[in-house]
Design a protein around this nucleic acid. Structure first.
Lengths: 278, 278
DNA sequence: ATGCCTTACGTTATACGTAATTATT
DNA sequence: AATAATTACGTATAACGTAAGGCAT
């Protein structure tokens, strides 16, 4: 009976040109490879090589069998990839989000409702989230604009209000509220991966923003620095990092957003329990 | 690394329904099969079964992997078949003939010119011979009508004249020649597999013909019987069977035919030496 | 009681490596 | 001398079978 390892080794030989090179590539001794090539010929019942004195060459059969072998090997490789992919898709819920905060609330709820599922999240902008929802890359997405299309099933899943986090003694630290324009010009610390919140930079065109790509390092930076930074009501609630700063609400309307959890209408029933739990 | 025997055993399990049955079908012990199915799961890194207390069932992954596995296995099986077929085609010359005689002369010539080739012959009627030559089922055909089509390369390869073989003492045994109509009404022995020569039956509508499907048995029959039979100049020359009968030529034009060796024009060069040898 | 699957353990087959041999460049 | 392939022989991996056990129908 023919086996895949024979075909793998045969293909390796064809692609390498000599037994020696192929053996090395396969982490195998030359004699082993030589014998297995004989075995393959034997299993197939035909010759594959022309054995010249100091060189092993493919004959016509060999040329032809190589084409066929590649197909079998590719098919087998694709089996593995596709099987693992299929398995993964059946045990992970992929969620696309427009910002980090909604996950903090959703993740524990989903873990409870679907205890065997792994949750995988990715950040992107609203439009591409919906496109990738359409093509089943995500099962769920969270947008900050309500998609009004019948093909989606959607429900509000919380609001988030951005705030300034001012160091003690900052000139505005006693204020109840502040606007972007009032803070414009002040250099600020900006946490990474903030999704659509990136727009705040445009509201404060005269400010400079210092970012640290790693969140933990960023938090340390916040502790150490006296530059003002951002936070939000949800961040305060879910990410428990007492930093001794004074939180001041932002008065602009844009600083408060509503999040919407969206799935395909056709999958509504799968996630009914989740929508109810919100 | 995943191997074909694992996939074969997996497919056998799916098709049998239980490990026990599959093991039997595979001529394998149940524990071995059980272990190998675990190994397959391990190699793929996913589960394929739901292990109920007393039953092994496919899960969703298993269903899916089975489809993929069948494809790989079919591909591998087809590799073997196609490889052997390819090899055979490269080392056999398939010749289609309209009658047995031309082979007697051609076979030794071809064996000499292509010593590594196996010669395979098949009998059919002219039209189908040419059709099968077109579709590469034959590399060469022998017809008894000259095909006048530019796509063929053809050359005369001998004539054959049919004769009556009369037992000693037959009323016509002193004749130089005889016609079909003169012999019409006499019951005759007719050798099997005579190709287009079958038409002689139509020329002697009042005769009855006794056939014996095995050639050796037929020759014995000829020895034993006193019924007249057929032979030909080529049969006399190549098949050395002294039967003590008197051979009388047949005067009808139809009793002499010319054979034509034909190959595709595109393959002329391959068989140039053969055509020259005729 | 019988059928089906699994675990445990000893055996065998076979794929592998090392060393030596032959031949070629 | 260096590179390539094959042959010969001993080794080790892993696939296999037997025996025993658990758990259903």
């Amino acid at each position: 009976m023919i086996e895949l390892y024979e075909l793998r080794q045969f293909a390796a030989f064809v692609e390498a040109g000599t037994l020696s090179e192929a053996a090395e590539a396969l982490h195998l001794s030359q004699p082993a490879l030589s014998r297995n090539m004989k075995k393959l010929e034997d299993d197939l019942g035909i010759t594959l090589f022309e054995r010249k004195k100091n060189k092993l060459e493919l004959n016509e059969n060999g040329q032809y069998v190589y084409e066929l072998a590649r197909k079998v090997l590719d098919e087998a490789d694709s089996l593995i990839v596709r099987a693992r992919d299929y398995d993964r898709k059946n045990r992970t819920i992929s969620i696309g989000v427009c910002a980090p905060a909604p996950v903090w609330r959703l993740a524990p709820i989903i873990s409870n409702l679907f205890p065997h599922m792994t949750i995988q999240t990715e950040q992107d902008e609203d439009r591409r989230l919906l496109a990738d929802l359409d093509s089943d890359i995500y099962q769920l997405v969270v947008t900050h604009e309500k998609p009004d299309d019948r093909k989606y099933c959607c429900k509000e899943c919380g609001k988030e209000s951005l705030m300034f986090a001012l160091p003690k003694g900052h000139k505005y630290s006693r204020r109840k509220a502040l606007s972007f324009s009032e803070m414009n010009g002040e250099n600020m610390l900006l946490m990474p991966d903030i999704g659509f919140w990136g727009f705040v930079k445009d509201r404060m065109p005269d400010s400079r923003f210092l970012t640290q790509s790693d969140r933990v390092s960023f938090n340390e930076l916040v502790q150490a620095s006296s530059l003002p930074s951002f936070t939000s009501d949800l961040a305060e609630k879910y990410t428990d990092v007492p930093d001794g700063r004074i939180k001041v609400a932002i008065s602009d309307e844009e600083a408060t957003v509503t999040y919407y959890l969206v799935c395909k209408e056709g999958r509504r029933r799968e996630y009914l329990s989740l929508f109810k739990a919100l």
